[in-house]
Every structure is written in C-alpha cells, then in structure tokens.
Design a binder for these strands. Structure first.
Length: 464
RNA sequence: GGUCCCUUCGUCUAUCGGUUAGGACAGCUGGUUUUCAUCCUGCAAAGGGGGGUUCGAUUCCCCCAGGGACCGCCA
C-alpha cells in the first residue's frame, strides 16, 4: 500500500472550531503514526463567505496546537478547472447528465414532498430525456447519475460496515448552472489528485462519502479508506457549532488554556489508549490509532479542560511556563516589563499552585506585574485603626530586618499576633491588602519575599 | 417523515464471554496548611428496557425505547 496521506479540509468561513481542531489532530496523528504525510486543503470555493483572514487564522490555530501540515497548503479555488474537466468526463462517459429543471420546479417538488410527509428526492426527470427536448432559455445544472438499484457498503475504519440502499441517494448536482463545481465533486477530485489514502472526517460527512464513492467508481479511481469520527456534542448533547460559546480555539487561549493541555484533552475526547490520560506529543503519535476511537459522540466538559490545563501548569518546566505566561499576557492582558522577570520567575513555584489557567497566574501575580497597588474601597475599609497600627509596627520591625526569610518574617508576625492579642488573620489580612490590594492571593510570606525588601517598604509607606 | 449512527458512574473512558465492572475529571468526607489553594486519605457513583445464544453475558444476535447526524445550485 502506498504511503499514508491524510488531509484536513476546512472552509475558511470563520474561526476554526474545536471539532475541526480535533479532526485535524486525528488526521495529523494518524499520518504521523503511519509515517505518512498530512495536508491542509483550504476549501474556499464559496467566494461569498471565504476570507483570507480566516485562512490565516486556521493555519495559525493549527500551529498553535501543534498540528503542522506537510507541504504547501492546497487551495481548492485554484483547481476549479481540474474539477470541471472531470465533470466533462463524467458527462461523456455517461455518469452525469444535464438537468434543466428550474428552481421553482424543484421547490414545488420539495413542497409537495413535505406535505405528503415523504422524503424529498430529485425525481431524475432529465436523467433519460433526450437532448432534443432541451429548453433553450434555461441554463442546466449537471447531476451525477447515482445508482438506483442495490446497496452500497462503506467499510468505515471507525464505524465498521455501513450499508445503505443506493436509491436513497439522489442524483446530486456536481456542476451549478453558473458553471462552478459543487463540494462533493471538488472534494473527490482533490482527494484523488492529492493522492489521499485515508479520509478521516466528522460523522456528519457520512452521506457525502456515499456520493463521493460513486464518483471514484465512475472515474475508475482507487477508493481511499474512510473513517467517520463521532461528533463532539455540547453539554446539552447537540452538535457543536460555531455559534456555541467556547467553541473556537480562541475562546480557550484567551482564558489561558495552554496548547498542550487542549491538545491532550482533545486527544482523549473520543479516543483512548488503555488508562493513559497524559500524552506528550511524541507519545500521542506513537500510540494513536483509529481503533481507539470510540463510536459514540462525546460531550465537551470544561472542568476536564481546566483540570488538564492545571496539570500542565504544574508539571511543565518553570521556564517554559514563564514563556507561555509572557506570551499570554502580551496577547490578552498587558505586556510584562522585563524588570519583572526575575521576581515573577521565582514566584512561579507558588503562583502555579493556585492556578488552573494562565489567566489565574496573571491575576495572582498582578501585585508583582503592576507597580501600583489598587485598593478597592471595600478592602480599604478592612484596614481599621488597629490594623494601621499593626502595619506601622510591622513596617518598623521589617525595616530592621537584615535577611528576608520565612523564618525571620514568622518571628515578626508572631510577635505582632501576641502583642495585639489577635490571630494570624488579624495581621496577615491587612498586610496582604496593603501589599497586593486583595484579600486573596498567595501566602503572605511568599508575597513579601517575592516583592523584596525595597518594594515592600515602598508599599507600606503609602499608608503613612 | 426517510436514511444512517450511537447507548458503561454527572463527564471522558477501560473491559476484546467469566472482573468485588477499573481509571481520570467533577462531587462529597477527613487530614496537612497561619487566607485561598496545593498535597495526601477515604466515600459515593454506571452497563436504557425486553427477548434470545451460552454453563456463563456489559461484551454476540434480535426487538423496543431514548439520543444524535444527514436530508442545499454551503462546505
């Protein structure tokens, strides 16, 4: 068998959604596992809706998650002449015909079918009509002469044998009356010319596969293998669409989900390898197979995505984490100044413990990232006269401190707790508020040590 | 309505006829923790229903029910 080649063929009509990303990922993994190639085809034949910016966005998204295609991207719109050539051949060898039905005529038929509650299928009116009766004023469409008798079996690599009656497939249009080819024709010709060996795509394409198989057969082309993967459903159990929120890659990256985490999540959504949950890229290539793909649709679960992300935050190298944080903040929050680097880096060890996302890290590290502490009125109220005294007292003792460690700080705090007859909260909370502007956040010792002596003094002095 | 697909804890899933039906996430206990977390214990939680086949079915077959996808001169 020839070298495995797969493709992902999105239409650039919007941001890539997560189902598409998973399809791309599966195609990519399968090809890499088989030491084959993975290609990207941009199906931009719908000129109204296709946008270059979407194409760029799609490529960027795939790259973000680690899926890179081999070779140049294949632009479908540049191949239209090839597609039309095949339509001509199909016409010549008797596998297609011109249909002169008007849209009104077709609409009428559909309406009638609806009224009778019958499934609409084109009545094949022009299939056997002779050319002599052709109306002059109507531009025809070209329809494929679909099989009427018998059944067809699709040997699906995921779903097994799927058999349908041929007459449930109508004589579908392959060339519009404006002379442009339609999806099923173009996709088939492209897949053949690109020498695709495996077509892995969403389950919603299954009916197209039956149509496309007939084109392959009519053209005497070798059939590729097909695999239809179950769709990703929303939590309500419906097909995920672009309109759903949290459906595009951007929705995840902007809240600080890291590419590896999302990749790992998507990999395990509808696919499994024993009990293994965490896969590096190399491992996923090594273990990926079509057999491991489940047959039932799976629901998107945000808490799993978050937890996967949390796992990666905790387990990747801190340098790597820092770089991802840097990129994330620049893209979605604010650019981190270079002089904050060492403070931030050394704080990562405790910051990451309370973060599920990069956004969480950013929020908890805000007191380091921004120079000015913003106190909300509400928080400010928590600093009463007594608290002020504590802070001033702390400030005095703190200034006398020679080396800043948890132990030395602990002594000071404990002293304060004793002399003011309060508890840890009584001392810790006002300090935390004055230093970070928030009641919540990292441990007070972590905060003080991460800020350093000078910065702490600066912030404490603001109270005076 | 027609065609096709699917059905194991709330969720993602393991099981290739024999298991106390396993793991992970979420949930809930308890412990550690000077906030919140982290970390560590533990608990609870599933084979849609009905028929077969079989010594034995979650696993194989059939029926039903439920859910989903598709039914464009979009891709």
């Amino acid at each position: 068998m020839s070298k495995v080649a797969t493709r992902f063929a999105p239409s650039p009509t919007g941001a890539l959604h997560i189902g598409g990303v998973r399809t791309a990922l599966f195609n990519w993994l399968f090809s890499k596992n088989q030491k084959g190639t993975f290609h990207l085809r941009i199906e931009d034949t719908d000129k109204e809706r296709s946008k270059d910016e979407h194409k760029i966005q799609i490529i960027k998204s795939l790259k973000w998650i680690g899926v890179e295609h081999d070779g140049e991207e294949y632009i479908q719109s540049t191949k239209i002449n090839d597609h039309i050539k095949i339509v001509d051949e199909l016409l010549k060898n008797g596998n297609a015909y011109k249909c002169y039905c008007t849209t009104e005529e077709i609409e009428e038929q559909k309406k009638r079918a609806r009224q009778k509650k019958l499934p609409y299928i084109y009545n094949r009116k022009w299939r056997d009509l002779s050319q002599a009766e052709v109306p002059k004023d109507i531009k025809p469409v070209i329809r494929f002469k679909s099989k009427i008798d018998g059944t067809t079996i699709l040997k699906d690599l995921v779903q097994g044998d799927v058999e349908i009656e041929n007459n449930t497939i109508e004589d579908f249009i392959i060339l519009r009356n404006d002379g442009t080819p339609t999806y099923n024709l173009s996709a088939t010709v492209d897949d053949h010319q690109m020498k695709m060996t495996h077509i892995i795509r969403g389950d919603d394409h299954k009916i197209n596969t039956f149509k496309q198989m007939q084109i392959y057969t009519a053209m005497k082309w070798d059939l590729p293998q097909f695999a239809h993967i179950p769709l990703i459903h929303t939590i309500e159990g419906k097909k995920l669409s672009k309109r759903d929120n949290a459906s595009t890659l951007d929705d995840y990256s902007k809240i600080g989900i890291m590419p590896d985490a999302l990749r790992n999540y998507l990999l395990r959504l509808g696919w499994s390898y024993k009990d293994k949950e965490i896969f590096t890229i190399d491992e996923s290539i090594k273990y990926f197979d079509l057999k491991g793909i489940g047959k039932s649709p799976s629901k998107l679960d945000m808490s799993r995505i978050l937890s996967m992300n949390e796992h990666y935050i905790k387990s990747i190298e801190e340098n790597d984490l820092y770089n991802q944080l840097l990129q994330y903040c620049e893209l979605f929050k604010e650019k981190i100044k270079t002089d904050k680097e060492s403070k931030l880096k050394s704080s990562l060890s405790f910051l990451k413990n309370k973060a599920k996302t990069l956004e969480d890290i950013y929020n908890n590290a805000k007191y380091i990232i921004s120079d000015e502490v913003e106190l909300s009125q509400e928080d400010f109220k928590l600093i009463d006269e007594n608290a002020k005294k504590i802070i001033l007292d702390f400030s005095k003792k703190f200034s006398a401190l020679e080396n800043l460690t948890k132990e030395t700080l602990e002594t000071i705090i404990n002293d304060l707790i004793k002399s003011y007859k309060t508890n840890f909260k009584g001392v810790g909370q006002p300090l935390r508020i004055i230093l970070t502007g928030s009641k919540f956040g990292p441990g007070i010792y972590d905060i003080i040590i991460s800020l350093g002596k000078i910065e702490v003094e600066k912030r404490l002095n603001k109270l005076v």
